[in-house]
């Protein structure tokens, strides 16, 4: 069967805020949800300058490691108000912030469990396609040590994916280029 040609991607450009702003975008869960945490970070370019016009989107499992989606055959566990999806711009000061619940471990389909992680897409002027990375959590050493994706990376590169604990959650900076360029994934 012949396949249709895919629609090619293009940059979001400098005016993404017109189309991609949601008032509740940063709330993967409502702020007053028990166990809610903030994942905050800054996106840096190759000069080390803050990228003030990026959009960060996240997709993740709930605290039991499940997805509210028909292709998760286990069925979702109810977490009232949990959307799994977040969207935050790096305006006005270059920092993004997402209010969420820490995800649980997710089966890897080969009999093992992945470490808790959040899939991330970064969009910006100057990126003709999204770039994809994953947030892992620095305080999940045991799970991280058993995660095939993380362990497949050289140790110095692995650290770019580890969000570090803060007062109200975690910090996860994204470096688009440079010595500490974040690990980006092809999906």
């Amino acid at each position: 069967m012949s396949r249709l040609p895919l629609t090619p991607s293009a940059t979001v450009g400098p005016y993404l805020a017109i189309g991609l702003t949601w008032e509740d975008g940063e709330f993967v869960v409502p702020e007053d949800t028990e166990g809610a945490i903030w994942i905050r970070g800054t996106v840096f370019d190759g000069n080390g300058d803050v990228v003030p016009d990026a959009l960060v989107e996240t997709w993740q499992a709930d605290p039991e490691g499940r997805f509210d989606h028909p292709d998760d055959p286990r069925g979702a566990v109810a977490h009232p108000g949990f959307r799994g999806f977040g969207r935050a711009q790096t305006v006005p000061d270059g920092e993004f912030a997402l209010c969420t619940l820490k995800p649980g471990r997710v089966p890897d389909g080969e009999g093992g469990l992945q470490a808790p992680h959040v899939d991330v897409s970064v969009f910006a002027r100057g990126l003709l396609d999204r770039v994809v990375t994953r947030v892992y959590f620095a305080d999940e050493a045991e799970a991280n040590a058993a995660d095939a994706v993380l362990q497949g990376l050289p140790e110095d590169r692995r650290a770019t994916l580890l969000a570090t604990p803060t007062d109200d959650g975690y910090r996860f900076d994204v470096r688009l280029q440079g010595d500490r360029e974040t690990v980006f994934f092809a999906v």
Binding site: N47, V51, A61, F67, D108, A124, G126, L127, R134, A148
Partner: peptide
């Protein structure tokens, strides 16, 4: 100064 310079790592398609 924005497009990553390293080759992206293949991510297996899991549940997420």
């Amino acid at each position: 100064v924005r497009a990553p310079l390293r080759t992206p790592v293949d991510l297996p398609h899991r549940l997420t």
